[in-house]
Design a binder for these strands. Structure first.
Lengths: 343, 343
DNA sequence: CTGAAAGCGCTTACAG
DNA sequence: CTGAAAGCGCTTACAG
């Protein structure tokens, strides 16, 4: 009951005593809230500085915000997420917010567990990349915590914001490019998942692929394959594809990561890329630039996606409730994996 | 003052009322603490289940643990960190702990800021991968929060645990392999950093490299180059190296990631790997297995490193204070980038 | 503009 | 074994 500095922790109380004001006043300065005079503010700031005060996030979280944002990714392999994340950081540079990451390892159960963990920890908002949850589960999450998705096309009436590239268009650009360079039997290599939904980027890309193939009069060549989780299994699927009687002359991979596996199998089988087989990826990650890959890919500006997602999330935390959707226009980047002598 | 369920949040109090016990009793069940009868425990658990109770982490953090561990990595590009992380997850599978990641983007200032943020958020402990901070700063952090490092060789009197592979030996294995396969002019391509310390893995590898070169009577060929942060700059350094009058016949890269860049430049310059140039990496990440890379590398069992780090951290959180150091013996994995016809 | 006091949901001695 | 009560460090109405 008596004022006894149990440990030497500097709290809001220590600051208040040092500055000769109330704890309420310090709290207000801390939150940049209304109703404090400039002189009081200055005095409090000076004391904070002097004492090296740092707010106790858990205590803040009991009543107000934690200034912590959750960033949820499926895995740590895909360098595309790194691009997105750096965009998030740019947007948050001059704010109090810190971003902490969760990695679900592409397991729906882990994804759910991590979201629960982030809500338990009173995070102020969530950015979820390519959620594995069903769309209705995303809605349930968003009802509890401000949420922005990247790589999840929202259904009407969504209670969360979303940031995407136009996957439909991206896929069409790929097919049109491959057709223009003389390919006919273009296979779309998608992701193997338990519950396929319209909201998924892979589904959107498949629709674009089918449409573009039809438009090119190549409807009879339409073929979709699915890559499992592990590298070994994926390579096995690709090997089957490339050793079949009617081998495709091009493979459009839903993400660069899978494209690298295709290039590997092609090389093992002694196929010449791009002459025997063209390979196109998606995301235009840094690996595409390496000469041993030189992989044509779709650039969807990961940095921009991340930056916009962070912006929308802050807005939503501040009170906006109507859903917003930000879309980036994808761009084809041609390299040697689809056109000879392109570097 | 009166009991009024402000929101419909299920708290320890709700559970206590439902189970007809005190909040203290519920807390004990929650923490698996001593001094509760089996019947009380069962009753409380049933109520928790029924009400869908979830502990409020911020509130727990005010007095006790948050059951949150911080995992700090320099970047999201290097797939090696993914291996480590999956090991951490295995170790934590059946515990209450959740791991949240921080990515410092290889900036010392961000590393410090993230560690502060994690301490502010009352995390129970920290696993820091390849810290950029000076060794004494790591000690300061460890004085405030239980800490385990991976990829940081501790100085005597350390107040934190560490998990490493034997970098010194790993480097020697690489040089010995390259010498045995007829290479003489082996360059070590290290990491460009502001403050070089003995604690760093890159330094340890350099020492091993120098020693093995001397032992092989190749002292006059010793040459160390440094790769900057960005891919573009790194490729430029490598290009200079490979276009110099006395071109090396082998490059030992401190990490696979850099090795991929070397392979790219070599291909651009029309050099045959491994005949004109052998390339060896470190970490044996999944990229080494791709046929277009087929890169010889040192396996340091990322999974094991992560698992042991998590184990040590839990021990330390539970009270151990003397420092422990766990070392993995590295293993050379030979592929086509150093020996012809190796697949 | 400023501050006293209640309360957020837990854990921790301490008594019983 | 069980529980009443203080307290963790903040924020939030509410008075002044």
């Amino acid at each position: 009951m008596a004022p006894r500095p149990k440990s030497d922790r500097v709290t809001i109380k220590t600051v208040a005593e040092d500055a000769g004001v109330s704890v309420a006043a310090v709290s207000k300065v801390l939150r940049d809230a209304y109703g404090v005079s400039e002189s009081l503010r200055a005095r409090v700031r000076a004391s904070m500085e002097k004492l090296g005060y740092r707010p106790h996030t858990a205590a803040r979280g009991m009543r107000g915000q934690t200034y912590t944002l959750g960033f949820l990714i499926p895995d740590m392999h895909n360098p595309f997420f790194s691009d997105i994340f750096s965009g998030v950081n740019v947007a948050l540079e001059r704010t109090q917010y810190q971003t902490l990451l969760g990695v679900s390892q592409s397991a729906t159960s882990m994804e759910v567990a991590l979201i629960e963990a982030m809500i338990d920890r009173q995070m102020d908002g969530l950015i979820v990349i390519g959620p594995r949850m069903l769309s209705r589960d995303v809605m349930e999450v968003a009802a509890r915590i401000p949420t922005v998705t990247i790589g999840h096309h929202p259904t009407p009436g969504a209670n969360f914001d979303s940031v995407n590239n136009d996957d439909h268009l991206g896929a069409k650009l790929v097919v049109q490019h491959l057709v223009a360079t003389g390919h006919k039997h273009v296979v779309y290599l998608s992701q193997e998942v338990a519950d396929r939904e319209h909201t998924m980027v892979t589904t959107q890309r498949e629709i674009g692929y089918r449409e573009a193939m039809q438009e090119a009069g190549l409807g009879k060549f339409i073929q979709v394959a699915y890559a499992p989780q592990t590298s070994r299994e994926t390579q096995s699927v690709v090997r089957h594809l490339l050793q079949s009687r009617n081998r495709p002359d091009a493979i459009f991979c839903w993400t660069d990561f899978i494209g690298l596996e295709v290039l590997s199998v092609a090389k093992e089988l002694g196929l010449n890329v791009p002459n025997d087989l063209a390979v196109v990826g998606y995301d235009n990650t840094s690996y595409c630039d390496l000469a041993q890959n030189a992989m044509t890919s779709i650039d969807q500006s990961g940095q921009v996606l991340g930056l916009q997602a962070a912006r929308l999330l802050i807005e939503r935390i501040k009170g906006r409730t109507e859903a917003e959707n930000y879309t980036v226009t994808p761009r084809l980047v041609v390299r040697g994996s689809s056109v000879p002598n392109t570097g």
